[in-house]
Nucleic acid binder design. Structure first.
Lengths: 241, 241
DNA sequence: TTAGTTGACGAACACCGTTCTACTCACGAA
DNA sequence: TTCGTGAGTAGAACGGTGTTCGTCAACTAA
């Protein structure tokens, strides 16, 4: 996900047409349905047939409104990005940190939607506005412009990856067995911890000697850690006054 | 991609069975074929039918050797991870930086294989060995153990994401039109630059005032930047002696 | 040698994205 | 107001997907 592009002004592309006693199809309703499926079942569960079924029609009807499935997913992503709060904070560090957490929360609220940001330029005025504010704060705070500029891309990539991986890990815990996710999760990590503990101590003395550090921390803590390391690294690039 | 698990000792699970005058199926050959398809067409191009076709049989025949397609992909990933060079360097920083670049290069040599690492624990003795060396170097160099431990996960995630995004961007440039990728790429970035330059200067003064920084740098430079920021951030956690 | 196990494999299932074609509605021009 | 046309709706079909089921026969162990 790199620097935002402008949001095109008009989301409608096809005019709704009567459908007997059914509600005419509208692009925004189609996008909403795609997003609803993402929110309940994840991005892979979105199929043109499933979206169309929600409108009691077949997949072919959607192609008057979207180019293809990727187009539909792109529009779903855009809808979410347009809800992104703007960055705020007293210092560039506080702003950067808070905004990173905000982006993560917004994306994470939509299962693995975040993966749609990989390799794309988000089409959202809101995100562009956020980038402007963040960039201004960093540069105003003394961060070299090149560092500040590249940080926008790098941190966006990191956030999207973190959300995506968090979602995947969550699916491991929701294994469909009907058992509570907490139970599945504890079992998973117990098994993993046992495998780590069973590493040969003579071959892997550092790993086995720091199991607590390696195994400790939840996803939020690890994410915060990564963001804080990055911020500290950027701060170290500020020339002395 | 988190800390490595031990590589199970034996890759074969089914005994090859005669097939008339055809070569009996073997798991390692199946995995090799999957990897070959990844290397030529990317991970999505791997289908059980396509893999099976290489052995002049149908997809059902593969299921004696792998549980399912995900299993096959997991084994392909493992094969690549087992080729990962071990970290080396005079300082923990040099080692960390070099190894990050090495991991990136190994993964990037296989199109979007990197995405298979998201949300998984890699089953590779080689990767475990590498983690041991890197962790020892960092802790030996004064990095707090908790920082060092979490850095392994965070940086692996960042690398995989960078490789994956790099691949996606590469696909944009290989648009199937037969035009040289360099030409397609230049056109893409020219278009993007024009859109950035067309942002309203009064609304986005910082973005428009730093187009050169925002647009500059290739994927390698941006990756290096991210790694170096992270290393600098970690170094800032080392207590004064 | 015999019996049991299981690898190989064809058929089929349920699903997928998309295109093609026909019908008909809605809009714009006269 | 009327008529022509473009395009939204939608069924059928194409070419594809992962996987299961059932059958045959190769292989191994006793």
């Amino acid at each position: 996900m790199t620097i935002a592009d402008r949001t095109p002004p008009d989301l409608a592309r096809a005019r709704p047409r009567a459908r007997g006693d059914k509600t005419p199809l509208r692009l925004d309703a189609i996008v909403d349905e795609a997003l609803r499926i993402i929110d309940t079942e994840g991005t892979d569960a979105v199929s043109m047939r499933k979206v169309a079924a929600a409108f009691d029609t077949g997949p072919a009807s959607l192609y008057a409104h979207v180019d293809n499935k990727d187009d539909l997913l792109r529009l779903a992503l855009r809808k979410v990005l347009d809800t992104m709060p703007l960055p705020a904070g007293e210092t560039w560090q506080a702003m950067f940190r808070a905004h990173a957490h905000t982006i993560r929360a917004v994306l994470a609220a939509h299962n693995d939607l975040a993966r749609l940001t990989f390799g794309t330029v988000p089409e959202s005025d809101q995100v562009t506005e956020g980038s402007e504010r963040l960039l201004a704060a960093m540069i105003g705070g003394g961060v070299p412009p090149q560092v500040a500029a590249w940080s926008l891309d790098v941190i966006s990539l990191y956030i999207a990856a973190d959300v995506h991986e968090g979602w995947l890990m969550g699916r491991i815990f929701d294994d469909g067995s009907g058992r509570p996710p907490e139970e599945v999760g504890m079992e998973y990590f117990r098994g993993f911890g046992e495998r780590m503990a069973s590493l040969p101590k003579d071959r892997f003395p550092t790993l086995t000697g720091h199991l607590e550090e390696l195994m400790g921390g939840d996803g939020d803590q690890r994410f915060s850690f990564g963001i804080d390391m990055f911020i500290a690294g950027m701060a170290a690039q500020i020339p002395p006054t």
